[in-house]
Nucleic acid binder design. Sequence first.
DNA 1: TCTGGGGTCCTAGGACCC
DNA 2: TCTGGGGTCCTAGGACCC
Length: 448
Amino acid sequence: MRDAVVLADADNFFASCETVFHPALRGRPLVVLSNNDGCVVSRSAAAKALGLANGVPWFVIRDQASRLGVVARSSNYELYASLSRRMMILMSHFFADQERYSIDECFLRSSLGVIRTRHHAAVMRETVLHGLGIPVSIGIAPTRTLAKIVIRLAKHDPHRGGVATWPSCQEGDIARATSPSRTADDLLAQTPIGDVWGVGRRLSKRLLAAGIPDALHLRDADPVLIRRRHSVVLERTVLELRGIPCPQPPSDASDGRRTGRILCSRMFSHPLGGTDDAIAGALSVYAQRACTRLRRQGSVCSRVSAFCSGRPRSPSDPGAWAERTVILDDPSDDPLVVAAAACGALRGRLDPDSRYVRAGVMLTGLSDRMTYDSTLNGLGARRDDHRLGSVLDLVTGRYGPSRIGIGCAGIRSVSRDHDIADDWGMRRSLLSPRSTTHWEEMAVVHAV
DNA sequence: TCTGGGGTCCTAGGACCC
DNA sequence: TCTGGGGTCCTAGGACCC
Protein backbone atom coordinates (compact mmCIF):
# COMPACT_ATOMS: atom_id res chain seq x y z
CA MET A 1 0.00 0.00 0.00
CA ARG A 2 1.33 3.44 -0.93
CA ASP A 3 1.57 6.29 1.55
CA ALA A 4 -0.76 9.23 1.15
CA VAL A 5 0.16 12.91 1.28
CA VAL A 6 -1.98 14.81 3.78
CA LEU A 7 -1.95 18.56 3.19
CA ALA A 8 -3.37 20.72 5.96
CA ASP A 9 -3.87 24.42 5.25
CA ALA A 10 -5.52 26.94 7.57
CA ASP A 11 -8.42 28.91 6.06
CA ASN A 12 -7.66 32.65 5.72
CA PHE A 13 -5.02 32.16 8.41
CA PHE A 14 -4.20 35.76 9.43
CA ALA A 15 -7.88 36.74 9.39
CA SER A 16 -8.80 33.61 11.36
CA CYS A 17 -6.12 34.39 13.98
CA GLU A 18 -7.68 37.82 14.51
CA THR A 19 -11.00 36.21 15.46
CA VAL A 20 -9.49 33.83 18.03
CA PHE A 21 -9.42 36.43 20.82
CA HIS A 22 -12.21 38.54 19.29
CA PRO A 23 -15.06 36.12 18.62
CA ALA A 24 -17.35 39.05 17.81
CA LEU A 25 -15.40 39.38 14.53
CA ARG A 26 -16.52 35.92 13.39
CA GLY A 27 -18.63 36.07 10.26
CA ARG A 28 -17.78 39.73 9.71
CA PRO A 29 -15.84 41.08 6.73
CA LEU A 30 -12.26 41.43 7.99
CA VAL A 31 -9.00 42.20 6.18
CA VAL A 32 -5.43 42.00 7.45
CA LEU A 33 -2.90 44.48 6.05
CA SER A 34 0.80 44.08 5.20
CA ASN A 35 3.64 46.02 6.84
CA ASN A 36 3.06 49.77 7.17
CA ASP A 37 -0.62 48.96 6.64
CA GLY A 38 0.24 48.83 2.93
CA CYS A 39 -2.01 46.35 1.21
CA VAL A 40 -4.48 43.56 1.91
CA VAL A 41 -2.79 40.21 2.58
CA SER A 42 -5.58 38.14 4.15
CA ARG A 43 -9.39 38.27 4.01
CA SER A 44 -12.15 36.57 5.94
CA ALA A 45 -14.77 34.64 3.96
CA ALA A 46 -17.21 37.54 4.35
CA ALA A 47 -14.61 39.99 3.00
CA LYS A 48 -14.01 37.73 0.00
CA ALA A 49 -17.77 37.59 -0.59
CA LEU A 50 -17.77 41.40 -0.82
CA GLY A 51 -15.30 41.14 -3.70
CA LEU A 52 -12.28 42.59 -1.85
CA ALA A 53 -9.09 41.35 -3.53
CA ASN A 54 -5.74 40.37 -2.04
CA GLY A 55 -2.80 42.64 -2.78
CA VAL A 56 -4.87 45.80 -3.17
CA PRO A 57 -3.37 48.90 -1.51
CA TRP A 58 -5.38 49.74 1.57
CA PHE A 59 -5.57 53.47 0.85
CA VAL A 60 -7.32 52.69 -2.46
CA ILE A 61 -10.21 50.76 -0.90
CA ARG A 62 -10.28 52.24 2.60
CA ASP A 63 -13.32 54.47 2.06
CA GLN A 64 -15.31 51.85 0.21
CA ALA A 65 -14.39 49.22 2.79
CA SER A 66 -15.46 51.29 5.75
CA ARG A 67 -18.79 52.00 4.04
CA LEU A 68 -19.25 48.24 3.71
CA GLY A 69 -18.49 47.73 7.41
CA VAL A 70 -15.15 46.00 6.78
CA VAL A 71 -12.83 45.71 9.80
CA ALA A 72 -9.10 46.15 9.07
CA ARG A 73 -6.17 44.97 11.18
CA SER A 74 -2.41 45.51 10.95
CA SER A 75 -0.33 42.35 10.65
CA ASN A 76 0.16 40.95 14.14
CA TYR A 77 3.11 38.67 13.39
CA GLU A 78 3.73 37.82 17.03
CA LEU A 79 0.19 36.47 17.36
CA TYR A 80 0.23 34.59 14.05
CA ALA A 81 3.60 32.97 14.72
CA SER A 82 2.50 31.87 18.16
CA LEU A 83 -0.83 30.41 16.96
CA SER A 84 0.97 28.76 14.04
CA ARG A 85 3.35 26.99 16.44
CA ARG A 86 0.45 25.67 18.51
CA MET A 87 -1.46 24.57 15.40
CA MET A 88 1.57 22.71 14.05
CA ILE A 89 2.18 20.95 17.36
CA LEU A 90 -1.45 19.80 17.53
CA MET A 91 -1.32 18.41 14.00
CA SER A 92 2.04 16.72 14.44
CA HIS A 93 0.35 14.26 16.83
CA PHE A 94 -1.89 12.83 14.11
CA PHE A 95 0.39 11.83 11.24
CA ALA A 96 4.07 11.13 10.61
CA ASP A 97 6.77 13.25 8.98
CA GLN A 98 5.28 16.70 9.37
CA GLU A 99 6.90 19.27 7.15
CA ARG A 100 5.96 22.87 7.92
CA TYR A 101 5.69 24.34 4.49
CA SER A 102 4.65 27.85 5.50
CA ILE A 103 3.23 29.66 8.50
CA ASP A 104 -0.23 28.23 7.81
CA GLU A 105 0.23 24.91 6.06
CA CYS A 106 2.06 21.64 6.46
CA PHE A 107 2.49 18.34 4.66
CA LEU A 108 2.10 15.07 6.56
CA ARG A 109 2.41 11.43 5.55
CA SER A 110 -0.13 8.68 6.20
CA SER A 111 0.28 4.96 5.72
CA LEU A 112 -3.12 4.19 7.24
CA GLY A 113 -5.07 3.52 4.05
CA VAL A 114 -7.60 5.88 2.60
CA ILE A 115 -10.56 5.30 4.90
CA ARG A 116 -8.63 5.59 8.16
CA THR A 117 -6.63 8.53 6.82
CA ARG A 118 -9.86 10.40 6.09
CA HIS A 119 -11.17 9.65 9.55
CA HIS A 120 -7.93 10.70 11.20
CA ALA A 121 -7.82 13.91 9.17
CA ALA A 122 -11.37 14.79 10.21
CA VAL A 123 -10.47 14.29 13.89
CA MET A 124 -7.32 16.40 13.41
CA ARG A 125 -9.41 19.18 11.90
CA GLU A 126 -11.87 19.13 14.80
CA THR A 127 -9.02 19.15 17.31
CA VAL A 128 -7.46 22.28 15.81
CA LEU A 129 -10.85 23.99 15.43
CA HIS A 130 -11.92 23.35 19.01
CA GLY A 131 -8.52 23.62 20.63
CA LEU A 132 -7.41 26.77 18.85
CA GLY A 133 -10.37 28.24 16.98
CA ILE A 134 -8.61 28.04 13.63
CA PRO A 135 -10.44 26.33 10.74
CA VAL A 136 -8.19 24.07 8.68
CA SER A 137 -8.84 22.41 5.32
CA ILE A 138 -7.29 19.09 4.42
CA GLY A 139 -6.45 17.49 1.08
CA ILE A 140 -5.49 13.81 0.77
CA ALA A 141 -3.80 12.60 -2.42
CA PRO A 142 -0.97 10.43 -3.70
CA THR A 143 1.27 13.45 -4.36
CA ARG A 144 1.73 17.00 -3.10
CA THR A 145 0.73 18.56 -6.40
CA LEU A 146 -2.55 16.60 -6.43
CA ALA A 147 -3.14 17.40 -2.75
CA LYS A 148 -2.78 21.09 -3.62
CA ILE A 149 -5.48 20.67 -6.26
CA VAL A 150 -7.93 18.60 -4.23
CA ILE A 151 -7.70 20.83 -1.16
CA ARG A 152 -9.62 23.44 -3.12
CA LEU A 153 -12.65 21.16 -2.93
CA ALA A 154 -12.22 20.98 0.85
CA LYS A 155 -12.13 24.77 1.03
CA HIS A 156 -14.99 25.55 -1.34
CA ASP A 157 -17.46 22.65 -1.09
CA PRO A 158 -19.29 22.94 2.25
CA HIS A 159 -20.57 19.35 1.98
CA ARG A 160 -17.11 17.91 2.44
CA GLY A 161 -16.60 18.96 6.02
CA GLY A 162 -13.21 20.49 5.28
CA VAL A 163 -11.60 17.23 4.09
CA ALA A 164 -11.28 16.20 0.43
CA THR A 165 -9.67 13.09 -1.04
CA TRP A 166 -8.31 12.71 -4.55
CA PRO A 167 -11.02 11.05 -6.71
CA SER A 168 -10.46 7.40 -7.55
CA CYS A 169 -8.89 6.68 -4.18
CA GLN A 170 -12.07 7.35 -2.25
CA GLU A 171 -12.62 3.77 -1.21
CA GLY A 172 -9.50 1.85 -1.98
CA ASP A 173 -5.76 2.09 -1.91
CA ILE A 174 -4.09 5.39 -2.58
CA ALA A 175 -2.17 3.72 -5.42
CA ARG A 176 -5.40 3.37 -7.37
CA ALA A 177 -5.28 7.10 -7.83
CA THR A 178 -2.92 6.51 -10.71
CA SER A 179 -5.50 4.46 -12.58
CA PRO A 180 -7.73 6.33 -15.05
CA SER A 181 -10.72 8.02 -13.50
CA ARG A 182 -13.36 10.19 -15.05
CA THR A 183 -13.81 12.36 -11.95
CA ALA A 184 -10.07 12.87 -11.58
CA ASP A 185 -9.85 13.94 -15.22
CA ASP A 186 -12.75 16.33 -14.71
CA LEU A 187 -11.06 17.86 -11.69
CA LEU A 188 -7.79 18.31 -13.60
CA ALA A 189 -9.64 19.78 -16.58
CA GLN A 190 -11.30 22.28 -14.25
CA THR A 191 -7.95 23.42 -12.88
CA PRO A 192 -6.57 26.33 -14.97
CA ILE A 193 -2.87 25.94 -15.71
CA GLY A 194 -2.00 28.99 -13.61
CA ASP A 195 -3.57 27.32 -10.56
CA VAL A 196 -1.22 24.34 -10.70
CA TRP A 197 1.36 24.38 -7.89
CA GLY A 198 4.70 25.52 -9.32
CA VAL A 199 3.23 27.27 -12.37
CA GLY A 200 3.43 31.02 -11.95
CA ARG A 201 2.38 33.89 -14.19
CA ARG A 202 5.28 33.71 -16.62
CA LEU A 203 5.13 29.99 -17.06
CA SER A 204 1.37 29.82 -17.45
CA LYS A 205 1.58 32.33 -20.30
CA ARG A 206 4.12 30.15 -22.09
CA LEU A 207 2.12 26.99 -21.47
CA LEU A 208 -1.11 28.58 -22.70
CA ALA A 209 0.68 29.58 -25.89
CA ALA A 210 1.89 25.98 -26.23
CA GLY A 211 -1.71 24.69 -26.06
CA ILE A 212 -1.68 23.59 -22.42
CA PRO A 213 -4.57 25.45 -20.77
CA ASP A 214 -5.22 23.25 -17.74
CA ALA A 215 -3.82 20.59 -15.42
CA LEU A 216 -5.23 17.74 -17.53
CA HIS A 217 -3.30 18.84 -20.63
CA LEU A 218 -0.15 19.25 -18.56
CA ARG A 219 -0.51 15.74 -17.07
CA ASP A 220 -0.81 14.27 -20.55
CA ALA A 221 2.12 16.24 -21.98
CA ASP A 222 5.38 14.43 -22.79
CA PRO A 223 7.65 14.80 -19.73
CA VAL A 224 10.82 14.65 -21.83
CA LEU A 225 9.57 17.40 -24.07
CA ILE A 226 8.47 19.46 -21.07
CA ARG A 227 11.91 19.11 -19.56
CA ARG A 228 13.62 20.14 -22.77
CA ARG A 229 11.35 23.12 -23.44
CA HIS A 230 10.86 24.28 -19.87
CA SER A 231 12.64 22.77 -16.90
CA VAL A 232 13.18 19.74 -14.76
CA VAL A 233 10.90 21.38 -12.19
CA LEU A 234 7.94 21.33 -14.57
CA GLU A 235 8.77 17.77 -15.60
CA ARG A 236 8.39 16.78 -11.94
CA THR A 237 5.02 18.54 -11.88
CA VAL A 238 3.88 16.40 -14.85
CA LEU A 239 4.87 13.24 -12.99
CA GLU A 240 3.20 14.40 -9.79
CA LEU A 241 -0.01 15.08 -11.72
CA ARG A 242 0.18 11.43 -12.85
CA GLY A 243 0.29 10.34 -9.23
CA ILE A 244 4.03 9.65 -9.12
CA PRO A 245 5.60 11.37 -6.06
CA CYS A 246 8.73 13.40 -6.77
CA PRO A 247 10.36 14.09 -3.43
CA GLN A 248 11.39 17.65 -2.72
CA PRO A 249 13.92 18.68 -0.12
CA PRO A 250 12.43 20.23 3.01
CA SER A 251 12.01 23.94 2.50
CA ASP A 252 11.22 25.25 5.91
CA ALA A 253 13.52 27.30 8.13
CA SER A 254 11.48 27.51 11.31
CA ASP A 255 12.66 25.74 14.44
CA GLY A 256 16.25 26.52 13.61
CA ARG A 257 16.48 24.43 10.50
CA ARG A 258 19.24 25.72 8.24
CA THR A 259 18.59 27.98 5.31
CA GLY A 260 20.96 28.99 2.53
CA ARG A 261 20.71 32.72 3.15
CA ILE A 262 19.15 35.12 5.57
CA LEU A 263 17.47 38.30 4.47
CA CYS A 264 16.04 41.01 6.65
CA SER A 265 14.53 43.98 4.83
CA ARG A 266 11.68 46.41 5.32
CA MET A 267 9.97 49.40 3.82
CA PHE A 268 10.34 52.53 5.93
CA SER A 269 7.18 54.12 7.26
CA HIS A 270 8.13 57.19 5.17
CA PRO A 271 10.94 58.00 2.69
CA LEU A 272 14.37 58.90 4.12
CA GLY A 273 17.02 61.14 2.55
CA GLY A 274 20.40 59.75 1.49
CA THR A 275 22.17 61.71 4.20
CA ASP A 276 19.78 60.57 6.92
CA ASP A 277 21.45 58.84 9.86
CA ALA A 278 18.29 56.81 10.29
CA ILE A 279 19.31 54.63 7.31
CA ALA A 280 22.41 53.45 9.16
CA GLY A 281 20.17 52.86 12.17
CA ALA A 282 17.83 50.70 10.10
CA LEU A 283 20.73 48.69 8.63
CA SER A 284 22.08 48.12 12.13
CA VAL A 285 18.71 46.87 13.40
CA TYR A 286 18.24 44.56 10.42
CA ALA A 287 21.79 43.23 10.78
CA GLN A 288 21.15 42.38 14.43
CA ARG A 289 17.86 40.63 13.58
CA ALA A 290 19.56 38.68 10.84
CA CYS A 291 22.26 37.67 13.35
CA THR A 292 19.60 36.39 15.74
CA ARG A 293 18.29 34.09 13.00
CA LEU A 294 21.86 33.15 12.14
CA ARG A 295 22.61 32.09 15.72
CA ARG A 296 19.27 30.29 16.03
CA GLN A 297 20.24 28.01 13.18
CA GLY A 298 23.82 27.63 14.46
CA SER A 299 25.53 29.22 11.46
CA VAL A 300 28.15 31.83 10.73
CA CYS A 301 28.19 33.99 7.60
CA SER A 302 31.11 35.07 5.48
CA ARG A 303 29.36 37.74 3.38
CA VAL A 304 27.21 40.66 4.46
CA SER A 305 25.23 42.53 1.79
CA ALA A 306 23.43 45.78 2.45
CA PHE A 307 21.07 47.50 0.06
CA CYS A 308 18.87 50.54 -0.03
CA SER A 309 16.28 51.42 -2.66
CA GLY A 310 14.26 54.48 -3.57
CA ARG A 311 10.85 54.79 -5.12
CA PRO A 312 10.72 55.30 -8.90
CA ARG A 313 9.67 58.83 -9.74
CA SER A 314 8.23 57.82 -13.13
CA PRO A 315 7.48 54.56 -14.98
CA SER A 316 10.82 54.82 -16.83
CA ASP A 317 12.80 55.69 -13.68
CA PRO A 318 14.17 52.60 -11.92
CA GLY A 319 14.60 54.61 -8.72
CA ALA A 320 17.68 55.06 -6.60
CA TRP A 321 19.57 51.85 -5.77
CA ALA A 322 22.65 51.21 -3.69
CA GLU A 323 24.05 47.79 -2.85
CA ARG A 324 27.36 46.40 -1.70
CA THR A 325 28.63 43.13 -0.35
CA VAL A 326 31.36 42.97 2.29
CA ILE A 327 33.42 39.81 2.76
CA LEU A 328 34.26 39.15 6.40
CA ASP A 329 37.84 38.26 7.32
CA ASP A 330 36.47 35.58 9.60
CA PRO A 331 32.98 34.12 9.23
CA SER A 332 30.94 35.39 12.14
CA ASP A 333 27.58 35.49 13.90
CA ASP A 334 28.59 38.48 16.01
CA PRO A 335 26.06 41.33 15.79
CA LEU A 336 28.86 43.90 16.30
CA VAL A 337 30.82 42.59 13.33
CA VAL A 338 27.82 42.14 11.05
CA ALA A 339 26.16 45.46 11.90
CA ALA A 340 29.45 47.31 11.34
CA ALA A 341 29.88 45.57 8.00
CA ALA A 342 26.32 46.38 6.92
CA CYS A 343 26.56 50.05 7.88
CA GLY A 344 30.07 50.38 6.44
CA ALA A 345 29.03 48.77 3.16
CA LEU A 346 26.84 51.69 2.11
CA ARG A 347 28.75 54.50 3.80
CA GLY A 348 29.26 57.29 1.27
CA ARG A 349 27.36 55.40 -1.42
CA LEU A 350 23.93 56.90 -0.97
CA ASP A 351 22.76 59.73 -3.17
CA PRO A 352 22.10 62.75 -0.91
CA ASP A 353 19.39 63.98 -3.27
CA SER A 354 17.45 60.70 -3.41
CA ARG A 355 14.64 59.55 -1.18
CA TYR A 356 14.94 55.96 0.00
CA VAL A 357 11.98 53.78 0.96
CA ARG A 358 13.51 50.40 1.77
CA ALA A 359 16.69 48.94 3.21
CA GLY A 360 17.86 45.42 3.85
CA VAL A 361 20.69 43.19 5.00
CA MET A 362 21.40 39.79 3.47
CA LEU A 363 23.77 37.24 4.96
CA THR A 364 25.22 34.62 2.63
CA GLY A 365 28.13 32.23 2.55
CA LEU A 366 26.59 30.47 5.55
CA SER A 367 28.33 27.57 7.18
CA ASP A 368 27.90 25.53 10.31
CA ARG A 369 29.41 27.31 13.31
CA MET A 370 30.68 24.19 15.03
CA THR A 371 32.35 22.97 11.87
CA TYR A 372 33.93 26.37 11.24
CA ASP A 373 35.15 26.68 14.82
CA SER A 374 37.03 23.42 14.47
CA THR A 375 38.90 24.51 11.33
CA LEU A 376 42.32 26.13 11.46
CA ASN A 377 40.85 29.53 10.54
CA GLY A 378 38.12 29.10 13.08
CA LEU A 379 40.58 28.24 15.80
CA GLY A 380 42.50 31.42 15.02
CA ALA A 381 39.42 33.65 14.94
CA ARG A 382 38.21 35.52 17.96
CA ARG A 383 35.44 33.44 19.45
CA ASP A 384 34.69 35.41 22.57
CA ASP A 385 31.90 37.25 20.76
CA HIS A 386 29.34 34.50 21.15
CA ARG A 387 28.37 35.73 24.56
CA LEU A 388 27.32 39.16 23.32
CA GLY A 389 25.00 37.63 20.73
CA SER A 390 23.53 35.21 23.24
CA VAL A 391 22.92 37.99 25.76
CA LEU A 392 21.20 40.08 23.11
CA ASP A 393 19.01 37.08 22.26
CA LEU A 394 18.12 36.55 25.89
CA VAL A 395 17.23 40.17 26.61
CA THR A 396 15.30 40.53 23.37
CA GLY A 397 13.41 37.30 24.02
CA ARG A 398 12.42 38.48 27.46
CA TYR A 399 11.76 42.20 27.04
CA GLY A 400 11.10 42.63 23.32
CA PRO A 401 13.27 43.89 20.45
CA SER A 402 13.04 47.59 21.37
CA ARG A 403 14.79 47.35 24.73
CA ILE A 404 18.35 46.63 23.70
CA GLY A 405 20.51 47.19 20.67
CA ILE A 406 24.00 48.13 19.67
CA GLY A 407 25.39 51.22 17.97
CA CYS A 408 22.84 53.02 15.85
CA ALA A 409 20.23 50.52 17.03
CA GLY A 410 20.58 51.45 20.67
CA ILE A 411 17.81 52.41 23.05
CA ARG A 412 14.78 53.54 21.12
CA SER A 413 11.41 54.76 22.18
CA VAL A 414 8.84 52.02 22.41
CA SER A 415 5.35 52.27 21.09
CA ARG A 416 2.90 49.54 20.26
CA ASP A 417 1.98 50.73 16.80
CA HIS A 418 5.55 51.33 15.69
CA ASP A 419 7.61 48.23 15.50
CA ILE A 420 10.95 49.56 16.70
CA ALA A 421 11.59 53.24 16.21
CA ASP A 422 9.28 56.21 16.28
CA ASP A 423 10.74 57.60 13.10
CA TRP A 424 11.30 55.12 10.31
CA GLY A 425 10.01 51.86 11.82
CA MET A 426 7.00 49.90 10.69
CA ARG A 427 3.62 51.54 11.07
CA ARG A 428 0.93 49.29 12.51
CA SER A 429 -1.88 51.60 13.53
CA LEU A 430 -4.57 48.90 13.48
CA LEU A 431 -2.75 46.33 15.58
CA SER A 432 -4.76 43.91 17.71
CA PRO A 433 -3.43 42.78 21.11
CA ARG A 434 -0.51 40.32 21.02
CA SER A 435 -2.44 38.16 23.43
CA THR A 436 -0.18 35.12 23.46
CA THR A 437 3.26 36.77 23.55
CA HIS A 438 2.97 39.98 25.64
CA TRP A 439 1.84 39.87 29.27
CA GLU A 440 0.47 43.39 29.21
CA GLU A 441 -1.68 42.58 26.17
CA MET A 442 -3.16 39.34 27.44
CA ALA A 443 -6.84 38.80 26.74
CA VAL A 444 -9.17 39.54 29.66
CA VAL A 445 -12.12 37.24 30.28
CA HIS A 446 -15.07 38.35 32.37
CA ALA A 447 -17.13 35.73 34.21
CA VAL A 448 -20.81 36.47 34.58
C1' DT B 1 0.73 60.52 -0.12
C1' DC B 2 0.03 55.68 0.66
C1' DT B 3 1.61 49.22 -2.97
C1' DG B 4 5.02 43.18 2.15
C1' DG B 5 8.75 40.07 3.40
C1' DG B 6 11.42 35.97 3.29
C1' DG B 7 12.41 32.02 1.45
C1' DT B 8 13.23 27.99 -2.37
C1' DC B 9 15.31 25.67 -6.67
C1' DC B 10 17.33 25.74 -11.31
C1' DT B 11 20.42 27.23 -14.96
C1' DA B 12 24.25 29.23 -17.24
C1' DG B 13 28.73 30.77 -17.17
C1' DG B 14 33.26 31.57 -15.22
C1' DA B 15 37.16 30.15 -12.25
C1' DC B 16 39.81 26.64 -10.91
C1' DC B 17 41.83 21.97 -10.43
C1' DC B 18 44.02 17.72 -11.93
C1' DT C 1 52.31 24.62 -36.05
C1' DC C 2 49.73 21.78 -33.28
C1' DT C 3 47.12 23.65 -27.30
C1' DG C 4 42.36 18.22 -23.44
C1' DG C 5 38.66 16.79 -20.93
C1' DG C 6 36.09 16.29 -17.08
C1' DG C 7 34.96 17.58 -12.81
C1' DT C 8 33.63 20.93 -8.78
C1' DC C 9 32.45 25.23 -6.79
C1' DC C 10 30.60 29.73 -6.84
C1' DT C 11 27.60 33.46 -8.32
C1' DA C 12 23.99 36.03 -10.58
C1' DG C 13 19.65 36.03 -12.38
C1' DG C 14 15.09 34.09 -13.25
C1' DA C 15 10.95 31.94 -11.67
C1' DC C 16 8.17 30.43 -8.13
C1' DC C 17 6.02 29.85 -3.38
C1' DC C 18 3.23 31.56 0.77
